[in-house]
């Protein structure tokens, strides 16, 4: 059987919030080591990959690999019933389960709610993501990244990201004119979560659709920092760490000159 008990149900709520607007139906692959999810948006421009290792759970048992086809809107309805400090238990049978049980327990043990979510058949292409050496890595506050994407959306539907040795520039333009926001590599680091790190091998200059970046920033509550990995003519990677026990990575195909 598959059984996973998460002490802080709020984490699962946050994970779901960060994937459900991008991917409606997702395959949750469970094996002895971790739960993984990979899904693309309907236009095949963006992809989300989530990894949550067994260590994240208070109790984790997976006798046989099992794949749960989850409708994220249905799962979200159940998790709306959970408080952040509720315990969440996921349960499913071993072989081709057609449903998954979710049990919510209040912290004081006085309230238990249980739900059965019907699983869905999902025919989806899984993509092999190659190991890539990126030209630039930018690590920054996740809240600042969210702010920049939101602010620039007022000016255009795409953002140009340019990395040079010491800074990263986010630019957007449209009918109102042009907006540039430049972050400079932090000279001193007082608080790691507020500092900006630009690690550059080669300069990059890429353009991405802001609509998707704004969806990615739904993961902001998961981590204080975010890492952007960029290479010329390659998809952008936006990564949020889930503590020491996993990550949410978003991949976004660039817009290229016609």
């Amino acid at each position: 059987m598959f059984e996973a008990k998460l002490q802080q149900g709020g984490l699962l709520k946050k994970i779901l919030e960060s994937v459900k607007d991008l991917v409606v139906d997702g395959l949750w692959d469970c094996d002895g080591a971790a739960i993984t999810l990979q899904g693309m948006d309907s236009s095949h421009v963006a992809l989300v990959e989530m990894l949550l290792r067994a260590e994240a759970f208070e109790h984790y048992r997976c006798d046989r690999n099992v794949t749960l086809g989850m409708n994220h809107n249905h799962l979200s309805k159940i998790l709306k019933c959970a408080n952040n400090d509720d315990i969440v238990i996921l349960k499913a049978a071993d072989q081709n389960p057609d449903s998954c049980s979710l049990i919510l327990e209040s912290k004081n043990g006085e309230k238990t709610s249980d739900f059965v979510v019907s699983l869905v058949r999902i025919d989806t292409d899984q993509l092999g993501i190659p190991e890539t050496e990126y030209s630039a890595h930018v690590k920054m506050s996740s809240g600042e990244f969210q702010r920049i994407c939101r602010d620039l959306s007022q000016f255009g539907d795409a953002v140009q990201i340019t990395c040079s040795k010491q800074d990263v520039k986010f630019s957007s333009s449209g009918e109102t004119g042009k907006a540039n926001i430049t972050l400079t590599h932090s000279a001193t680091v007082d608080k790691e979560e507020e500092s900006v790190t630009v690690d550059l091998k080669e300069p990059v200059d890429l353009t991405f659709a802001l609509r998707f970046l704004n969806l990615f920033t739904k993961a902001t509550p998961i981590s204080d920092t975010v890492t952007l990995s960029l290479s010329q003519e390659a998809p952008l990677v936006v990564e949020y760490k889930i503590g020491d026990s996993g990550h949410i990575r978003y991949f976004l195909a660039p817009k290229i000159q016609e």
Binding site: A46, L127, A234, P235, F251, A253, P254, E258
Partner: peptide
């Protein structure tokens, strides 16, 4: 203008 590329042109289907 710029054209939106698809992820499948960078990553192979498994």
């Amino acid at each position: 203008g710029r054209k939106q590329t698809a992820l499948t042109s960078f990553f192979k289907k498994m």
